[in-house]
């Protein structure tokens, strides 16, 4: 699914890296716990989260995640936006809550990834 489609499905606003909108993502992960995100292995994922601190951006960078969606209308601060820009990570923000945002993407064919278990 293209990031532009995620934007449309979630009626989201693009905060930075608009040039990545035509990038494809293959799976999604929704969590407010960064170690849960880091236990997740799929390539080309989008991260949905209600947290807006710099560690969210660094966690995404560690995982090679190219797009983060902030749910519940969360707006990142300027320093968080700058960090995302420097790492070329697209940031979207939606008024939807986590459950609904994930549900909409799943219903439209974006699958969850797997978690390494051993």
């Amino acid at each position: 699914m293209k990031i532009s489609k995620i934007k449309k499905l979630l009626d989201a606003k693009v905060i930075c890296c608009e040039h990545l909108l035509e990038t494809e993502v293959n799976s999604a992960c929704g969590s407010d716990m960064m170690s849960d995100v880091l236990a997740f292995v799929k390539d080309n994922a989008v991260l949905l989260t209600g947290l807006v601190n710099p560690q969210v951006i660094r966690t995404a960078e560690m995982m090679d995640i190219k797009c983060i969606v902030f749910v519940r209308g969360k707006e990142p601060t300027e320093n968080v936006i700058e960090l995302a820009q420097s790492m070329e990570i697209a940031i979207l923000t939606t008024d939807e809550r986590m459950y609904v945002a994930c549900g909409k993407l799943y219903m439209n064919g974006l699958e969850g990834g797997s978690v390494i278990t051993s």
Binding site: M33, M34, S35, L38, A39, T49, Q55, I116
Partner: peptide, 18 residues
């Protein structure tokens, strides 16, 4: 710390896994 997104108790197991 939990409200910052850490404290799931998954860090050390992740380090071992990877």
């Amino acid at each position: 710390i939990r409200s910052l997104g850490f404290g799931a108790g998954m860090g050390l197991p992740n380090m071992k896994r990877y």
